[in-house]
Nucleic acid binder design. Structure first.
Lengths: 333, 333
DNA sequence: AGTCGATGTGATAACGATTACTTTTACAAT
DNA sequence: ATTGTAAAAGTAATCGTTATCACATCGACT
């Protein structure tokens, strides 16, 4: 590898001058600068980011941990983040927690070893609290995205409760009362089922416990959903994640049920397959929220040292996108 | 941040001893080792991977560049890779080329700056040849995955031509002759349409040029597909990527056509939505190929210095998974 | 003429972990 | 008692970059 020393030798100057030419900082002669840059270019010089960060004590690396890449929603989020971070000059170190706390922890440790300048992650649970705190104590800005497991940490989330409320209300407005809610079971966000309950209560529809279920985010729920559909015959379903929505379709296919004629469906997250199959969806604003998250984090990084005591906790409004997967079954009056 | 020096001071030894205790290499007393490790633990010590790599001249970082994360297939590939690399002790730096050569190049440069130990990527085109060569010249093992843009570089790909052949043959066996091929247009892999042609020729079915199309991998092909379907009324479609498959469904929905009754469909890549909607698919073996790719790359890294002149170029067999999206329209004889 | 300040460059010391080399210690073999 | 040898631990240099300090040059102004 070509180093600054090599360039210095070729240009007949010291490596300090080469450094100044590269960064454009400090006093550097105009001619010398162009000369050095052209030599560097011809030798194929590339900075050693590791050496750079060791000397400066800072890196331009951001750690990102996603909980589930199979869920297209998180793929979209990841894509947006990478693009935005790259534009801001950051390198992304990627971890994958697979909804598992221990894996999340080992990823966090790896990122600390890489001396990341900040971390964005979708927490799996709140079981890594002490470690997260030690990171925070080390001055590493941490941002929770889409889930808020740690109250005292910065977070940007979508109002899931509101989303479930919108979905359920929409179904109620279309005449449905036997609505199956496939919620996410997690000590972090029991919110989606709350929204369901609010909408049902508001419409004075009694809630049947058999129709309000909670599952692990990465659970295969086909068998249970099939049982519920056969036993309770709901006329509509709210799928709390888009993978749950896929499972619903698989079950409907097994049972010969058609959406929306036999059963209506609203799905969380407006991902490509949901769009192509024209499914009514609760859209979480991926683009906006992601860019906001990145810029927020970068701001925290830049004013390191300043105590940013205030915990930022943003909550973003989801939208219902009405498409063709909901049938109006209201009796004509 | 806690350094080895801090631990050394606390333990009353030199930092060299601390280093030996950490690595377990060289001569180190048993008691001293446990003592040092416990002190390190209580102080919350974490190695500085940057300092480590500067000193040793090697990193345990692998660069991964994906071309399209929206395509669930690549999400699955990425997920597998991260898990496998993590198990092998590597850190992943992620780049996203978005099917764009210039973006690919800037990602490659970033990775060189990070002094990655190796690169796995799905090339966009062969336009970055000279830069790729310079990386190779710098002794960085590079592996092309799923696409082979650079002949002289190691590659692991699936036999796309064979996949298209399987898909087309399957449709022909089910009585279809007017088969629309939605291929991928790229100077890298014109193979999928080749397989289509082979199958058609074998069955002595004349190929209509209107039915053999090529598109950019990330192109929105809905309008063109709609036009072709309306004009040519094919009875079956081979979607060369699963995003093309989604577009086909969107168009069918617009036109009121149902799969498989009105039109049959075979899709490339056995991703979650394809499984849930019970679509006949050409499955590329994600798990196997990915693990193979990782291990291959790690082997190259480990025996750096040895000239590994032979270019590894693996081609893996795709499989047709027969499901419910193909209708048998053969006349009963 | 002499002082000041602005500018250009060199020399050098870190950053934190590793390692070749050296020193010390312990203990066995002669 | 002396030498030999292996284990344990210390010393210091090194990786590539950059920040700090020092030095030199030049023009301008009192």
């Amino acid at each position: 590898m070509v180093t600054m020393k090599d360039i210095a030798k070729a240009a007949g100057v010291s490596s300090a001058t080469v450094s100044r030419a590269m960064k454009g900082s400090g006093y550097i002669g105009k001619d010398m600068k162009t000369k050095i840059l052209s030599i560097a270019d011809s030798l194929g010089y590339v900075v050693d980011a590791n050496a750079q960060s060791m000397r400066t004590g800072t890196t331009n690396t951001i750690g990102v941990i996603v909980c589930d890449i199979r869920n297209s929603f998180f793929s979209m989020v990841l894509m947006e983040m990478i693009q935005e971070l790259k534009e801001s000059g950051y390198t992304v170190v990627l971890g994958y927690s697979n909804e598992d706390g221990a894996t999340e922890l080992s990823n966090l440790k790896m990122m600390l070893a890489s001396r990341v300048a900040g971390i964005i992650f979708t927490p799996v649970s709140n079981e890594n609290e002490s470690y997260i705190h030690s990171l925070h104590g080390n001055g590493i800005p941490i941002l929770q995205l889409y889930r808020r497991a740690y109250e005292e940490l910065n977070s940007i989330v979508v109002d899931d409760e509101r989303g479930a409320y919108l979905a359920t209300s929409h179904l109620i407005q279309n005449g449905h009362t036997d609505i199956l809610m496939l919620g996410v079971d997690s000590d972090i966000s029991p919110n989606r089922t709350n929204g369901y309950m609010t909408a049902m209560n508001e419409a004075h529809i009694p809630i049947k416990k058999n129709l309000m279920l909670k599952f692990q985010p990465n659970e295969d729920i086909k068998i249970e959903v099939r049982n519920v559909i056969e036993r309770c015959r709901p006329t509509a379903i709210v799928a709390g994640t888009n993978t749950f929505g896929l499972d619903v379709f698989a079950v409907c296919h097994q049972l010969g049920l058609h959406v929306p004629n036999d059963i209506s469906l609203v799905v969380f997250d407006d991902v490509p397959w949901v769009q192509s199959f024209d499914i009514t969806a609760i859209a979480q604003p991926v683009g906006g929220i992601t860019v906001t998250a990145i810029h927020t984090l970068i701001n925290w990084i830049k004013r390191a040292g300043m105590e940013n005591a205030e915990v930022v906790s943003m909550k973003i409004e989801p939208k219902l996108i009405s498409r063709c997967s909901v049938k109006n079954i209201r009796k004509i009056t």
